[in-house]
Design a protein around this nucleic acid. Structure first.
Lengths: 146, 146
DNA sequence: AAAGATTGATACCTCAATCTTT
DNA sequence: AAAGATTGAGGTATCAATCTTT
């Protein structure tokens, strides 16, 4: 007869490892295709469908990146002309970031590779019921409750 | 009526985010207590109960770290005298790493903080059934199948 | 003073190249 | 040549300090 406490740590460890294995497989697939890492896509995809761009602090919340990291990641993206920054008219302290044409093109190039890697390292192993259960659990962890 | 494909990407995203939120909370708790990061604990805990130490390539497999990273992480751990390295008698190319007394002591200090953080950021949100379901899913992702 | 964002210093990761032993 | 491990260079993350505007 197993208890909650007996199961907890093994599940935590399996959670960490399964994440690591899946993400590494995705990063590997992108790299093998000569494409930039996952973090770049995360930022670009948030800017998609935001023609006016987003404030950096808004991006911060959405991509779960600290403001220091975001600032430097945007530097790199801007350098390769995948995004552009502009001074914010309403607030002199802030700036907005928005997708360039090249940024949109890169996303279009990355998506099929990314999607295929999600299938191979994640979806392939799971049933429809698994997907539903995992959704329920991850939503709880993201504390929609508190 | 929802399909597998409709659910897949949102679940993938939720999986990434829930991991990020939980791990960041744990890292924060360790740091706030003036303790080293999770990665250090991962290595130390694998060495616990291995009085003769482990070969580095064995550690590699267990902690999901590349050999380059492990080599340098062991440098740092050795520098603070948390582990010690020794030449491997059976194989002149290799070396073994083993816990020092100070390493064991640090683990003892880290564990309550780590355990509490797992409770707060992870276990607290989940039921016994959730734990079982997550175990089943993560095991599949670690492809015990292939 | 507080919020938005950047910068400098330092730690850490990643790749390719290297060294030694098998 | 192949396996175990280290090293140097470059890229990325993290913290504290800073600058500007509110």
């Amino acid at each position: 007869m197993s208890t909650f406490d007996e199961q907890l740590i093994p599940v935590w460890v399996a959670f960490l490892r399964s994440h690591s294995v899946a993400v590494e497989a995705v990063e590997r697939a992108l790299k093998d295709a000569g494409l930039p890492p996952l973090g770049w896509y995360d930022v670009l995809v948030e800017l998609l469908g935001q023609p006016g761009g987003l404030r950096q602090f808004e991006l911060c919340d959405r991509v779960l990146l600290s403001k220091h990291n975001l600032s430097r990641l945007l530097d790199r993206l801007e350098q390769r002309e995948l995004i552009q920054r502009a001074a914010c008219p309403q607030d002199g302290r802030g700036s907005t970031a928005s997708l360039t044409v090249a940024g949109k093109a890169l996303m279009k190039q990355m998506w099929p590779v990314y999607r295929q890697a999600i299938d191979d390292s994640f979806a392939r192993h799971l049933t429809f019921r698994d997907i539903g259960a995992l959704r329920r659990i991850t939503d709880k962890l993201l504390h929609e409750g508190d």
